[in-house]
Each structure stands twice: as structure tokens, then as C-alpha cells.
Amino acid sequence: MANGLIIAAKATQDGSLGDSLVLIIAFILLLILLKIFAWKPVVKMMDDRQKKISDDLDGAADSRAKAEEMAAKRQAELKNSKAEAIQIVNTAKENGEKRRDQIVSDAQTEAAHVKDKAHSDADQVRTEALNSARAQVGQIAIDIAESLIKKDLDATDQQTLIDAYIKGLTNADETK
């Protein structure tokens, strides 16, 4: 122990003013060199990073808001388009029905028309046929009668006789 105390006693006298000077110079040099070579670039990098992170966070919030807005817009558009689609389909249906009805009614009217026309044609043909038959039958009958009886019949008497005959024919035809 005594030995240790001697060390202590001696050691307090070991330092000298020169050491203080060396320390101050060395420390100031260290400060200057570290400031230039390490501190400035590192702190600049740290500040840059901090700035970048906060910028990125701001940007993320912005783009998030934008995305939400866009999604809402899309949703609304989707809803609109659904309604529109339904409307389109409905219109198409309506048009289709209208068109169908029209086609059917057109067809019906045309069919009626065709039927009427056919009727009238048939009537006309029949009356024409009857008329011509009436005229021809008269002549034929006269010719036949002339040739058969060789007797001159009064043309007018003959005509009334034939008319009566034809009337009987027509009546028979209608009752058939």
C-alpha cells in the first residue's frame, strides 16, 4: 500500500504545462478535421434523409387522398353506367316491342288488304265471267235454238227467256 501511495504522490507531479498545450492543439485539430471530413457530410446526409422521409410521407398522404377521390369517382361512374345500361336495355326492349307490334300489325293489315283484294278480284272475275257467260250463253242459246227449231224467234223474247234461265242458274248457284 505504501508503494501505491508513492505512485499517487509522484503521479500528481507528472503532468506539465506542455501537455496542456499539446492537448488543446490536438483537440482543436481534431475538431477541425472531423468537422470537415465526417460531421458535415454525415449530418447533411441525415438532414437530407429526414427531409426525404417527410417529403415522402407528405407525398404518400397526397397520393392516398387522390386515390380515394379517384375511387369514389369510379364508384359513382360505375353506378351511373349501371343505371345507363339498364336504361339502354329497357329502351331496346321497348323499341323491340314497339317494332314487333308494328310488324305484327303491318302484317295483319297487309294480310287483310291482300285478303280484301283477293276477295274483290275474285268477285270481279266472277262477275266478269258471269257477264261474259251471260252474253255468250244468250248467243249460244239463240244459235242452238235457231239451229234446233229453225224458227226465228223474236230476239227480245229470246233475251227475256235467257235472262230468266240465267237468274234461275244464279239462284241455284247461290243456294249451293
Partner: peptide
Amino acid sequence: GLTFNVANC
């Protein structure tokens, strides 16, 4: 005129 302790320096 200054004394320097070599170990310290």
C-alpha cells in the same frame, strides 16, 4: 521553456 511529458503527449 515548456516541459512535455512524452507519455501524455
